[in-house]
Design a protein around this nucleic acid. Structure first.
Lengths: 210, 210
DNA sequence: GGCGGTATCATACGAACGTTTGAAGGGAGT
DNA sequence: ACTCCCTTCAAACGTTCGTATGATACCGCC
C-alpha cells in the first residue's frame, strides 16, 4: 500500500474541504492539488465521502487527545482551564482547517459525524467539570458550568475561524507570533477574570507570562 | 416593478446561501424554493452574484443599525456593553443566516465584501470604545480594548453559529425561549465579570509583553 | 524472461451547474 | 381593440461535477 498518495490526498482534502466544504471541493481540484490522477480518490478511499471522513478524523482525533492531556496537568482548576485554552489555541493555530471543517459540517444538511459530536461533548464536558471543580473549592464563581464552558470555548473557536476577517478588517494578523501571544494572553486573562470568584489572590503565586 | 418575486428570491437566497454558501446554493434550488422560474434571478438581479450581494446587504445593514442604537442607550459603559451583547443575541436569534453567511464569505476565496468589513470595523470599534471609556472611569479592568472586544463578540457569534451542534451535541436547543434567556444571561454575566475591575488590587497581570 | 498484484493513467458517462434565448402572459394607457 | 412594457416561462447552451472503466506502468518473485 503506497501511503504517499493517500497522505497527499488527505492533506489536499484538509485544505480544500476546509475552505470550500464537501460539495465545494471538487474531486478534480483535490487530486490536482495532491498531484495525483483524477481517479486516485476513488481508488484509495472508495469515494469522495470516504476521503472526507478520513480528513475529518485526521483533524479531530489529535485535537481531542491534546485537549484531554491539557486537563491532566498540575495546578488549580483555573490553571488547568487556562492550560486547556492555551492548548486549544495551539491546536487551532496549527490546524485552522479544524474549525473551518466544523463550520461546514454544521451548516450543511448532512448529519454531523459521530466523532465530531462525541469530541464536542467530551471537550465541553471537560471544561465544565473543571469549572464545577473550581466552584466546589470556591475558586470559581457560581453559574451553569456548561454554559460557562461554552463561553470559554467560543473565543478560541471564533477567533481562529475569523482569522481572515481579523486581518482584513482590523489589521490583526495572526501569522505574526507576537500578535498571537498577545491575543492568547488577552483571552486567558479574560477567561480567568470571567470565572474567578474574586481577584485570584489565592492561587496567583506564579506569574504566568510566556 | 413587481417586488414580491424579488423579495422571495432574497428570502430564499438568505436561507440557501447561508446554509450552502455561494457556490453550494444553486440557482435552481433558490428559484425553486422561491417558487419562481429558473430565469428569475438573471432577470431581476442580472446574475447570481448580484443576488448574493443583495442578500448580504439585507442582513448586514439592519444588524449594523441595531447595534449602533444599542450603544447609545443610558447607563454605565458596562451597562451599554451588556446592551450591545443582548442586541447582538437578538439579531443573531432573529437572523441566524448572518453569521453563517459571514463564515462562508470568510472561508471562500472571493474577497470579503466592503460592507462586511466596514460593519465589522464599526462594531468592534464600538465595543472597544465602550471598553476604553470604562477603563478611563475605572469601571473596567486594564487590557487591550480591541482584543477584549473580540472576546466579547466571539461568544454570541460562535454560539449562534454552532446552534445545530449545540442541539445535537449537548442537547441545548436554542429554539426554546427559556434556553435562550439562560444562555444570554450566562454570557452577559460572563462578560461583565471578565471586564469588571473587581477587587483586583494585584494588578500586575495584564498581558503586556515587550 | 515472464507473472500477478498494486497503482496510475486517460477517457467516458449521465447529471447538475449558471446563463441565454425567444416566445407567451397580463395589466395600464390610448 | 390595440400597443407597450414588464414579467414569467420552457428549452437549450456549454461547462463541470463524481464516478466507472479498461489500459498501461511498476515491481518483487517464480
Amino acid at each position: 500500500m503506497n501511503d504517499t498518495t493517500r497522505e497527499s490526498l488527505v492533506r489536499a482534502g484538509r485544505e480544500l474541504f476546509a475552505r470550500h466544504g464537501f460539495d465545494g471541493a471538487s474531486v478534480r481540484a483535490i487530486t490536482r492539488q495532491a498531484g495525483t490522477n483524477l481517479g486516485a480518490i476513488t481508488y484509495h478511499f472508495g469515494s469522495k465521502q470516504a476521503l472526507f471522513e478520513a480528513v475529518a478524523a485526521s483533524l479531530v482525533q489529535p485535537a481531542r487527545e491534546r485537549l484531554q492531556a491539557a486537563t491532566r496537568g498540575p495546578g488549580t482548576p483555573l490553571d488547568r482551564i487556562e492550560a486547556m485554552v492555551r492548548a486549544f489555541f495551539e491546536i487551532l493555530f496549527e490546524h485552522p482547517e479544524l474549525p473551518q471543517l466544523m463550520v461546514h459540517v454544521m451548516l450543511s444538511s448532512s448529519p454531523v459525524p459521530e466523532v465530531g459530536l462525541r469530541t464536542m461533548q467530551a471537550n465541553v464536558g471537560l471544561l465544565a467539570s473543571l469549572i464545577r471543580e473550581g466552584q466546589e473549592d470556591g475558586s470559581v464563581r457560581p453559574g451553569d458550568p456548561q454554559l460557562m464552558a461554552l463561553s470559554v470555548a467560543a473565543q478560541p473557536l471564533w477567533l481562529a475561524l475569523a482569522r481572515r476577517m481579523l486581518r482584513e478588517g482590523i489589521a490583526l494578523d495572526l501569522k505574526e507570533p507576537e500578535t498571537r501571544t498577545d491575543l492568547v494572553a488577552s483571552v486567558v486573562t479574560f477567561v480567568r477574570a470571567a470565572l474567578s470568584v474574586q481577584a485570584e489572590s489565592a492561587g496567583a503565586e506564579h506569574p504566568e507570562i510566556d
